[in-house]
Design a binder for these strands. Sequence first.
RNA 1: GGCCUCGUGGCGGAGUGGUUACGCAGAGGACUGCAAAUCCUUGCACCCGAGUUCGAUUCUCGGCGAGGCCUCCA
Length: 477
Amino acid sequence: MAEKPVLTLYNTLTRSKEPFAPIDPDNVRMYVCGPTVYDFAHIGNARPVIVFDVLFRLLRHVYGEDHVTYARNITDVDDKINARALRDFGKEIEDGRLSLNEAIRRVTEKTANQFHADIAALGAMQPTHEPRATEFVQPRGDGKVDMITLIERLIERGHAYQAGGEVLFDTQSMADYGQLSKRNLDEQQAGARVAVDAHKRNPGDFVLWKLSSPEEPGWESPWGRGRPGWHIECSAMSAAYLGETFDIHGGGLDLIFPHHENEIAQSRCAHGTPVMSNVWMHNGFLQVEGRKMSKSEGNFFTISELLHEEKFGGRKWPGEVLRLAMLMTHYREPIDFSVKRLEEAERLLAKWPAGGNPAEGRVDESVRAPLLDDLNTVAAVQALHALAQCANADPLMLPVFAASAELLGVLPKKAEVSKALEDSIETLIQLRLEMLKAKNFAEADKIRDDLAEKGIQLKDGKDPGTGERVTTWEVRR
RNA sequence: GGCCUCGUGGCGGAGUGGUUACGCAGAGGACUGCAAAUCCUUGCACCCGAGUUCGAUUCUCGGCGAGGCCUCCA
């Protein structure tokens, strides 16, 4: 077995770059927090999807395709979802034509389908597992970890208590709570913006389970009919698919606190383990045209809007362009999403050769090395651009380019052209060549312009042997 | 108020205690009947101030600016 290349990753837990050493190289395990499916995913949501998709591809490249397990959840239980269901189906529910649960199912299904369509357009691979929170609330037939069992265990071990119709995690019961976000709960009180609820033992305690009113969705539990708190689902699903301790946990910067901090607390206290995930990775935030993205600023864009509507810069943007634009900034840096940036990504992509077969080439070291260094996609894209220029000059390099591009998920696809169109283009090219021989430039240029109108770009070259004009064409992407 | 990031040419962005990548755009040129593509050449920067140092864009401190979390927002 060849020596594995060394992968270095920045670990939020230690705030430093560390060499990555999987617990089991035959099964490298990664968990990423997925979407809460109550509304269309916005372009900011796309960032972790793309970043961790590249990491998934890289891990598969290093450890082998069958030796990486990637779980990304879908959160389909959340009070925002309930609110959305009432908003969209309130009338039907009132009339008794639809149950709340059915309305919720419709909201989550529609949103999840949309999410899948959106990220597929961004070139994201399907994770190995994509569990839904609702399937992990109650004990399961297959023995996989579920939320209620986890909560029971936390109570048994003295890390959780019932109060005021809730089950709460007792942050004081965990000696080293706050490791990830480097937060000291006592000092936290100074700012005193944490709401002090009378039933909480400590202001930082958070909800594991809360009771539902008859109108609210709920599941039967030892504490009555209710629904889970925000953080417990990831503790359950990560353990269900990756085990009590695994390699990498990822998500957006904003999740460090409280979400990930609380996940760690729940998981470690429930399992009695010193570590939940060895490495914690967080992607930076996204701004749009230099401003924080928000609906009130009018610079809020969903992935779908960028792909299919002419809202951003007055035009649609292909998924590959959005993806490449995202990878042109290091994942930990803030990224400013702008029209200019998308245009640059599109120009690059247009210069890259399509049609190479990744299976026939090897990933070039110039692309792989920067990726191994904490996912430096910026340097990798630059190296890939250089490879593209090599491949344009020398077709033998095409598979190398293709394999390298595929590692980043930015391999240009060969545009589909029907045989009939192809034939008619060839005929027009011949016609134009004849006109050029006759020095009938006006007619010849008209043919070129007409084809350009249809997105067909003609390129004139010279046959190196005869010096004859040779015309090739390609579909402008 | 507390805790974190970050600040490099028009733009995107590496990187380094000393000789300052690279890409895109721009300018000039080659090629072309003209284009496109391609190739060659080229201008332009390290937020401010103090300190450490023979020397700082790179280290330290202080400003200023941008952003995030502390409010179930990736």
